[in-house]
């Protein structure tokens, strides 16, 4: 009963942080029967989006320092704490903090997959790095794979 959703997080004005919204745009061509949401990663909004959901796939730019820009990381955030994942946010609370806040509040869906695309640049600006732009098709494939896993 619509218990899965895809949430694409990001800011189009922060270089590679735009990857989340751009993956959402690509996913819209696939006519999925599950909702694809855009979100700025703020806790209130995220908690609302995944309220009563069992599974969510979250797409966002990340900086892990493990892998080159464009590397796709798949993290299971539902059952284990996220490693130190840095998210580009000009606000005090980003995606990783929002997920951990939801976990503290016991409001985290059981199954949260984070598809994190290693960012090269999160500076203000509308251009993505070549590597991250090139990773978008693979990120879309990874999202679809996670959805099919159900």
């Amino acid at each position: 009963m619509g218990e899965t959703a895809i949430i694409c997080v990001g800011n189009r004005a922060r270089s590679d942080d735009a990857v989340g919204p751009l993956v959402a745009a690509e996913l819209s061509r696939h006519q999925l029967d599950i909702p694809v949401h855009l979100c700025d990663g703020q806790p209130g909004e995220l908690l609302d989006l995944w309220d009563h959901l069992e599974r969510v796939v979250v797409v966002d730019a990340v900086i892990t320092g493990r892998g080159r820009p464009g590397t796709i990381h798949v993290l299971q955030a539902g059952t284990e704490p996220l490693p130190a994942v840095s998210h580009a946010s000009s606000h005090g609370i980003g995606l990783a903090e929002s997920i951990e806040l939801a976990r503290s509040l016991r409001l985290l869906p059981a199954d949260v997959r984070l598809i994190g695309i290693e960012a090269g640049s999160l500076e203000p600006g509308s251009d993505l790095t070549t590597e991250v732009r090139a990773a978008i098709p693979q990120a879309v494939v990874q999202v679809l794979r996670e959805i099919d896993r159900a």
Partner: peptide, 22 residues
């Protein structure tokens, strides 16, 4: 240290804050 830590001990209050924000 953060709201995440606060929320573990005061979940009702933090949820109240989030709901007011909403």
């Amino acid at each position: 240290e953060s709201a995440i830590h606060l929320a573990k001990d005061f979940p009702d209050e933090v949820q109240m804050g989030l709901r007011m924000k909403k």
